[in-house]
């Protein structure tokens, strides 16, 4: 199903886009199974209409929006972003959406709102992976409010000129190109504004391995593998050397968000 959007030239990467087939069959979405080929096979059971997203917590104007009105909240842009997975592979994906800041402005966060929390659907009937206790369900991810307000943070509804396939987080997800992929919550049903740093899914599962910030950082290794290099899916095949990973995945414009912070400590 097509989705119309205008390419934002500020985010028109000149790197080769990942093949649609790879981007839609090689997914980490544990709600649909832990194997990367599973989401494409099992996500058909997800019903993306009707769908509502509740925005609540430390805001002056809490609201529950129908997905179609949420899509119409701001003009849709196409943005080509790098995606770096914490596992050491990367893709280049043309997303469709608008800056999350548009939605944040609309609900008017209170002075208490310092963090934002994204909560994924938690319905065993639609998501077979929820039956296994690999993580605490529902999947929760979060950002500091200033990170969420950065123009790069994209509230995402489509990719490759089409609405999001279920296995990629339909009907609405986040795309945060300077952070490891798992920070980008998928199939979101609730967005909460909170005072304290939220307990996020991977961080509480393995705090030594997955920090709250999880910015792409070639200098901070994952305990079980190096983050200095990455394999670009579809390009860096068997016989190609891996490419160097860039600080903040190459999005140096976010650096000011973290000035004065020890990124080895707040990884």
């Amino acid at each position: 199903q097509k989705m119309a959007a205008t390419l934002n030239p500020a985010y028109a990467l000149i790197e080769k886009k990942t093949a649609y087939k790879d981007a839609t069959t090689y997914n980490n979405f544990y709600e649909f199974g832990t194997d990367k080929s599973e989401p494409a096979q099992t996500a058909g059971s997800l019903k993306t209409r009707p769908w509502t997203v509740t925005i609540e917590g430390e805001v002056k104007k809490p609201i529950t929006l129908d997905i179609d009105s949420l899509i119409k909240l701001a003009p849709l842009e196409e943005r080509i972003y790098r995606l770096r997975c914490v596992e050491g592979w990367s893709m280049v994906i043309p997303w469709i959406g608008y800056s999350l800041s548009n939605l944040i402005k609309k609900v008017e966060p209170t002075a208490n709102a310092r963090y934002i929390e994204f909560i994924t659907l938690d319905d065993k009937k639609q998501m077979p992976g929820l039956r296994s206790p690999v993580l605490e369900w529902p999947y929760v991810e979060g950002l500091r409010l200033d990170e969420a307000n950065h123009p790069l943070a994209l509230l995402t509804f489509g990719m490759y000129g089409e609405v999001l396939p279920n296995q990629n987080g339909a009907p609405v997800r986040i795309a945060l190109p300077w952070k490891y992929g798992f920070k980008s919550a998928k199939s979101i049903v609730k967005i909460r504004f909170v005072k304290d740093q939220p307990r996020t899914a991977w961080n509480s599962a393995a705090p030594r391995e997955y920090g709250f910030y999880s910015n792409v950082n070639p200098e901070v290794d994952h305990p079980r593998w190096s983050q200095a290099t990455e394999r670009r899916i579809g390009e860096d095949g068997l016989f190609a050397r891996k490419r160097k990973t860039l600080m903040f995945n190459g999005y140096s414009e976010v650096a000011s968000l973290y000035s004065g912070m020890d990124l080895k400590k707040f990884f």
């Binding site: 990367k36 080929s37 394999r231 095949g237 068997l238």
Partner: peptide, 15 residues
């Protein structure tokens, strides 16, 4: 699979 390009998106991981 290697010759038929059927090792999936991440051939090294597959092997």
């Amino acid at each position: 699979f290697a010759f038929l390009d059927k090792l999936g998106a991440n051939p090294v991981e597959f092997i």
